[in-house]
Design a protein around this nucleic acid. Structure first.
Lengths: 310, 310
DNA sequence: CCCTACTATACCTCCAGGGTATGAAATTCG
DNA sequence: CGAATTTCATACCCTGGAGGTATAGTAGGG
């Protein structure tokens, strides 16, 4: 599959006419026909229904058209961005973080970093904890904020704080009536929903480990891809779900939350960075985080801070 | 820019070594060097710092690596999906809708459609109202649910209901203390945030039109790309924002909402479809929507239903 | 300073992709 | 309904570009 073929196919799909598409592409019609045939052959799929005019797309063709058009636009964007970055010569600093930290300290930290280093282009990429390790080693990100502990020779990690967990109930569930903290033991025999399903190990495994340590066995375990889906299923009454306390602002009108009583029921926020640049900006970031924690922002209420004062 | 070049570049960026990358790609090293050079030349950007070993990526190279790797993975996915769809021969029905309808009737409607047509693969694509018109004409979607009225010869539209609007205040704003409905006139001289910034015309323009009809002029108008960003700025105290009532479940702990008093302060939910297949499944979808409205779900409370009984 | 490892350059070969001519099928119109 | 027209597929040729080999140039380690 080549970009050329996709570009050609998009033109044909848009025009529903080979000859006009060929004109637009500034090539003759026969080579265009051939490229489309080759594409169909490689995929082993008919993309066009040629039996009557105007041409129509098959289901597979419709899908490929839709996706390819999006992708080609994205490639143009990547090309322009690459040129722009190449010209600007500005240094970039990229933060990788799990979604839940965006409800916590990341926005505030980025604000402080922009003040500290106005000449730096700071960007954020949402990614799973596992992905952060390889992204760090490959240089795709410069620091990571995740929830799962990993050991890697090249990557150093630092636990910033331990965030308390809460249980999400569907509105009206008998155990959701009390607002008091709940013991994990009470989840015995309840259907449970965990996330994310890929990649493993993940927050899902931390939760399952926590429960098995306490000998709590759910009636069933359903895995979903992300927290929104998990809370959607909770709201639909499929089961319960355990999430970090800071994420409980979501879906307030059809999901109820109760803090978990057990002291050990926490999930860490872990900062990871390459050992080789441990003494560059990383030290100053640690300092910014200490200052931020010292200001005691609202999302920090439900955490035990680990990062010591300097 | 060819896919081949991007694949090659990703390999080099990953290995930080031309020779090893060439081995992995099963080609000799000189052609690889040449492809990378051509890529750099086309972009007018240095992607690699070759002055010392091991090679390192420039900022532009780092960006291109990160983006290309993602994209190549996506292309593989598209190829496989296209094959799968081609083999399965199942009919697909694709719904395009604006994000806010996902908090409203779309999930319920999809559920009803799956019951009605179990043999159909139903998919959802989030897209702006404007985009729905072209997506319909190009066959990328089969029905659209949006908020902006468009006239197009090939597309028929049907107003399902008019949803009431609410004003979002930062917590603690003096006007947020009352829970009573607020008159739009009270927004005179307040800084306003609207979304989405692109493409126009959009919900942002509907809001601005509504205000100018009532001769209400905000102190300032800030445009942001999406509702999450808008509410983030509201929470940060940058200004106020007008959103559909169904979206007010977001950010309950740092944003307050007040219903708008004015009867005209509504935003429609508009269903669009191709005239040519107006009598296919579309009629049955209208029927399903009527049934759904008849069940009077909670998200419908704040709307005036337009779609008449059959 | 020399050796090793690695990348760039020069030059050759061959095929993929484009062009033209033309046949085959669907559509339109008298 | 049949002729004219439009449109896509097939056959064949030709050129540019992608890959290969040989070798020169350069960085890094002992």
């Amino acid at each position: 599959m080549k970009l050329r073929q996709l570009r050609y196919f998009v033109a044909v799909a848009r025009e529903r006419n080979f000859s006009r598409a060929a004109e637009i592409l500034h090539i003759a019609q026969p080579p265009l026909s051939r490229q489309i045939q080759q594409l169909e052959e490689e995929l082993g799929v008919n993309l066009l229904d040629r039996s009557k005019r105007p041409l129509s797309l098959t289901e597979a063709g419709r899908y490929l058209y839709e996706q390819s058009a999006k992708m080609l636009a994205k490639i143009d964007h990547i090309r322009e961005q690459t040129r722009r970055i190449g010209r600007s010569q500005r240094e970039r600093f990229i933060i990788g973080c799990v979604g839940s930290t965006l409800y916590g300290g990341i926005p505030d930290l980025v604000r402080r970093m922009r003040v500290q280093w106005p000449e730096l282009d700071i960007e954020i990429r949402e990614m799973m904890s596992t992905e952060q390790v390889t992204a760090l080693k490959e240089g795709r990100i410069d620091v990571g904020f995740g929830r799962v502990r990993f050991n890697d020779r090249e990557v150093e990690r630092l636990t910033l704080r331990e965030e308390r967990l809460v249980v999400a109930f569907p509105k009206g569930h008998p155990k959701s009536l009390s607002k008091e903290p709940i013991a994990l033991a009470e989840l015995q025999g309840e259907p449970l929903i965990v996330y994310p399903s890929v990649p493993r190990p993940s927050f899902a495994d931390e939760i399952l480990n926590l429960l098995s340590e306490l000998s709590v066995t759910p009636a069933s375990v359903e895995e979903v891809r992300e927290i929104q889906a998990a809370l959607g299923m909770v709201a639909a009454g499929v089961g319960l779900c355990i999430i970090p306390a800071a994420s409980q602002r979501q879906r307030p009108d059809d999901v109820c939350y109760r803090m978990i009583e057990d002291e050990k029921a926490t999930s860490p926020i872990i900062m990871s960075f390459r050992r080789v640049d441990a003494n560059g900006r990383i030290d100053q970031i640690k300092q910014l985080i200490r200052e931020m924690y010292a200001d005691n922002p609202p999302w920090l209420q439900l955490s035990n801070v680990r990062l010591g004062a300097s």
